[in-house]
């Protein structure tokens, strides 16, 4: 699989990453190299193999649906870039 600059631009958009246009060709080359490398996986027929998501194959541990966290808004917002009145501020979304 070889990616061109347009495809890299689209992937960067999906990942919400700003990529300097001057760096696009380098990313295209590196990503193509990596994808070519991982295609070695295709050498093996895995049609009958169950995918493995977790090393210990444990079921997800469940707990009672009760409130266990206390409100720590001020503590969490102390590291936020911009807050006001307990709210996180972002640029206007609705005109």
């Amino acid at each position: 699989m070889s990616l061109n600059n347009e495809q890299v631009t689209e992937i960067a958009h999906l990942a919400r990453l700003n990529v300097d246009p001057a760096d696009l060709s380098d990313y295209a080359r590196n990503l193509s190299d990596i994808l070519a490398f991982v295609e070695a996986m295709n050498a093996v027929d895995t049609s009958s193999v169950e995918p493995m998501a977790h090393p210990l194959e444990m079921p997800q541990r469940l707990r009672e649906d009760v409130v266990t966290e206390e409100n720590q808004r001020e503590r969490f917002q102390a590291v936020a870039p911009q807050v006001e009145g307990g709210l996180y501020l972002v640029p206007r979304v609705i005109e």
Partner: peptide, 19 residues
């Protein structure tokens, strides 16, 4: 924010994963 905050290798891996 993400473009400035992450370096090249992290961006590569995020993009490989996204793809």
């Amino acid at each position: 924010s993400r473009g400035e905050g992450f370096g090249a290798e992290v961006k590569r891996r995020i993009m490989v994963g996204t793809y």
